[in-house]
Nucleic acid binder design. Structure first.
Length: 256
DNA sequence: ATGGCAATAGAGTATTGA
């Protein structure tokens, strides 16, 4: 089973890329972030025609998440039941006995800002909800844009980024509370090339110069981590015309 | 230190992203 996550930065603009990528990479489950579409504008017919069922939760202009699946999705949950949030950043569903959570963690803008406080409160609530979900679902995967680079090796220039947004000790500690639940970063279960990133700034030729961050992650419960046999970042879509600034992360799970 | 690029809303420019 192949599972993946991709922040598409507008599904309206990126639908051709999504369909192109899926035709070459027919993953079983794909979590999308930043669809930026209200539900009435979601391209349901095109995604169904590509062979996928889909659960989605969107809003105008910002945020918006979706889970595409070749198998039926059940027990669909929108947002964290422990956290009242007008922003559509989470959708969850059970697929083939696995609980999937698609998450778009707040950006946070700048350490100490109001948006940063929101990010930290949001992550604390996510932790509490995940603890309950993991107790109920031993097979759990949470995929998405975490807007946190876990370690300095996930940052193109740790000195330049300092202790700013996406790399601050507080954010890394919040991510650490998730791994303390037993969740494993699928990418780091395996040997990986140095300077592997999942996002590059549009500006300053960020991609060409590989000035990136690894902020998109697949976290797996212990049972699923034991089934994981590969995890890769697919840089290819970032080379296409008018790309998202993020690129897909794909994990392979051994069949039971 | 700032802005640089892209998407959106909406009609010139502001906001947000990371």
């Amino acid at each position: 089973m192949k599972i993946a996550t991709w922040n598409v930065n507008s599904l309206k603009v990126r639908l051709p890329h999504l369909l192109q990528w899926l035709s070459a990479n027919p993953v079983d489950v794909l979590c999308l972030q930043e669809t930026k579409l209200t539900d009435d504008k979601f391209p349901l017919a095109e995604i169904n025609a590509a062979g996928y069922e889909v659960a989605f939760s969107g809003q105008k202009t910002y945020n918006g998440v979706a889970i595409l699946s070749r198998l039926p999705l059940t027990d669909i949950q929108k947002n964290n039941p422990l956290y009242e949030d007008p922003q559509q950043r989470i959708i969850a569903a059970t697929i083939g006995g696995i609980r999937f959570i698609c998450a778009y963690v707040p950006n946070g803008q700048a350490v100490g800002s109001d948006k940063f406080a929101y990010k930290m409160a949001w992550l604390a609530a996510l932790h509490d909800w995940l603890a309950a979900e993991m107790a109920e679902h031993p097979q759990l995967a949470i995929l998405g844009d975490y807007n946190i680079a876990p370690e300095d090796r996930d940052v193109h220039d740790p000195v330049e980024w300092g202790e700013g947004i996406h790399v601050s000790p507080a954010e890394r500690a919040a991510l650490g509370t998730l791994t303390a639940l037993g969740l494993r970063d699928a990418f780091r279960l395996f040997e990986q090339p140095e300077k592997s990133y999942s996002w590059w700034d549009y500006r300053m030729m960020g991609f060409r110069r590989n000035r990136g961050l690894r902020i998109d992650h697949i976290l797996l419960s212990p049972v699923l981590a034991a089934r994981c046999e590969a995890c890769v970042i697919d840089r290819d879509p970032r080379t296409w015309e008018q790309p998202s600034d993020h690129t897909p992360v794909v994990a392979t799970l051994r069949e039971m």
